[in-house]
């Protein structure tokens, strides 16, 4: 299978300045700090991790909505890391994003049809009747009645608003969509509707997804691969079945145990992770997880672990698996 997306050693640092008159650069928020990833054509990569670990920043860097500090982004075989703004324009047609909060991401003063058709206007695609037809088609595709095109966002329910967001993302026939927590704000019964919709669309339109979420059960259901992120870095990456059969990074293991299972007979395993994640402006030395890791040992606070392959396709960045390091 070919990779639609390849990311090499991607970094995004947000500079921190102090002082009003003499603005000094005093440090950086290392939101994304050396990420290698690839996403296969027509597949879904699920990206999980605590809030603030850099998921959204990574997604936005790939789309070139924000400038990466370092590293390489290859899209469909082409290096897009340093495209100029006029070259980015074409890229926008191929890559889209769906946001978490459908309320905030839709212009309240624009009718639904106008919102969905806006990308067509921006790219001056088709004539008036062509656009009108396309909007109807998009609305039907996401399960909205085209008769509702003249209604405003507040007249739609949360699930319907997210459908509008999805239709807008589909308007330019993209190949790749970053889904940034698209169901996190929705009720469970509505989540299931949107997850199904995303899957149907993926199959019908041959889409590739980066699916960001904090709900691992949803990610498990929709993803072909799963990546776990901690303080700007990927700590574990594997195909979904392998990931759940053999979760290997101590952080992944705690994450999985932290999720309450909707079954009263499930064993109550309580070993909650201590404390909050450290600040990405001053990440811990060595392995970034060592300050909270229940399995920390000798080298962990000194040497940053490099990702190693522990089985075919399954990568883990942890000294428990590092070669040449003995416990």
């Amino acid at each position: 299978m070919t990779n639609l997306i390849e990311i090499k050693q991607l970094k995004k640092y947000f500079p921190i300045y102090r002082g009003v008159l003499l603005r000094r650069h005093v440090g950086d928020v290392r939101a994304v700090d050396g990420v290698d990833l690839s996403i296969q054509q027509s597949s879904t990569l699920g990206l999980v991790g605590e809030s603030g670990c850099g998921k959204s920043t990574l997604g936005r860097c790939i789309l070139r909505l924000i400038e990466p500090t370092e590293g390489k982004i290859i899209f469909d075989g082409r290096d897009i890391t340093s495209l100029k703004s006029h070259e980015l324009r074409d890229l926008r047609r191929d890559m889209q994003i769906v946001f978490q909060d459908p309320q905030a991401s839709l212009n309240p003063r624009m009718a639904a049809g106008k919102i969905i058709g806006e990308p067509l206007d921006v790219f001056k695609l088709g004539d008036k009747s062509g656009r009108h037809e396309k909007i109807n088609e998009l609305m039907e595709m996401v399960g909205l009645d085209p008769a509702m095109a003249s209604r405003y966002p507040h007249e739609f329910s949360g699930g319907q608003k997210q459908r509008i967001g999805v239709a807008r993302a589909l308007a330019l026939n993209p190949k790749f969509i970053v889904c940034d927590e698209p169901v996190s704000a929705l009720d469970v019964s509505i989540q299931a509707q949107i997850v199904n919709l995303m899957q149907e669309l993926q199959e019908k339109l041959n889409l590739t997804f980066l699916f960001i979420a904090h709900d691992l059960s949803v990610v498990r259901h929709i993803s072909d691969w799963i990546a776990v992120m901690y303080l700007g870095q990927i700590v574990e990456l594997a195909p979904t079945e392998m990931f759940f059969a053999n979760p290997s990074h101590p952080y992944t293991q705690v994450l999985l145990k932290s999720i309450p299972i909707p079954d009263p007979d499930a064993p109550a395993e309580y070993a909650p992770l201590k404390g909050d994640p450290p600040s990405p402006a001053a990440p811990p030395s060595g392995c970034r997880f060592h300050t909270r890791c229940p399995k920390r040992f000798e080298p962990c606070d000194k040497i940053p672990p490099v990702p190693v392959l522990i089985e075919n396709n399954h990568t883990v960045a942890c000294h428990l698996y590092s070669r040449g390091i003995t416990k």
Binding site: V188, Q199, P262
Partner: peptide
């Protein structure tokens, strides 16, 4: 029943979830 049915189940590989149609 509908609420429980629409949750993704880890141990059964389903193609699609079973949502409750409509909205509250």
């Amino acid at each position: 029943k509908g609420l429980l049915a629409c949750l993704p189940k880890p141990d059964e590989k389903r193609e699609r979830l079973d949502p409750i149609p409509g909205s509250p």
